[in-house]
Design a protein around this nucleic acid. Structure first.
Lengths: 110, 110
DNA sequence: CAATTGGTCAACCATTTGGTTGAATATGGG
DNA sequence: CCCATATTCAACCAAATGGTTGACCAATTG
């Protein structure tokens, strides 16, 4: 069985893809620009973006010859609910989160 | 690179393993009892439990010849923080969660 | 001790994953 | 029209994943 939850968690289990998601927090981006900071082929990034799209975590829209990638944070909803249940986590502290993100971007870049 | 977050999300991306986690919400269980409801070999479940242990989501302790499995919800903390950032989800509603879990257990069993 | 129970290990297998490269397909600009 | 740009496709590859079976080891019980 391959539920939505499988697909979302599996999409999140790769640090390149998580890094892409954090980049898209800033703004929508074209595929080529998403690929720029990574040391891997454009085709590889294109595949990652396909996986993210299948998971619903981003959407892609072609305008002219560029394909724009847009974060779709609602896709995390069910997964987040599933997870929170196990720990009853308090609401997230945004300062702590920014520090966390910096750490993530330093340690976790492809 | 294979960060902690990779390992946790990857552990969560399998519905058998998520089902095991929900079983362990009830109580600690022996490996054989964890395996009982699944239509797969004990060895397969043993592997899943190893993956969950490596991820920190559960711990295992051998007492006599029985190995007890225990949920370790703290392991979800960083992952949950990471996820919440993308949606600023409100604190989880426990009733909604119970409905969600029932759905999960009905649809998502191995 | 012998037999049973609980669990893992090892070897194997099919499928998926994450990457590569080179060709192909739009689309836009001069 | 021709060329450059943006992106995907196709074929390939190595490694990881999720499962199987049978042998194995450890602990309990009769």
């Amino acid at each position: 069985m391959n539920t939505k939850l499988d697909i979302v968690f599996s999409a999140l289990s790769d640090s390149t893809r998580r890094h892409i998601l954090t980049m898209l927090l800033e703004d929508d981006m074209a595929v080529t620009d998403v690929a720029e900071p990574f040391e891997m082929s454009l085709a590889a990034i294109s595949k990652h973006l396909t996986i993210l799209t299948r998971s619903g975590l981003i959407s892609q829209e072609k305008r002219g010859r560029v394909k724009w990638c847009k974060l779709e944070p609602d896709a995390l909803r069910d997964a987040s609910i599933w997870m929170q249940s196990f720990g009853q986590f308090e609401a997230v502290n945004l300062d702590a989160f920014e520090r966390f993100l910096e750490r993530e971007l330093d340690n976790d870049t492809a």
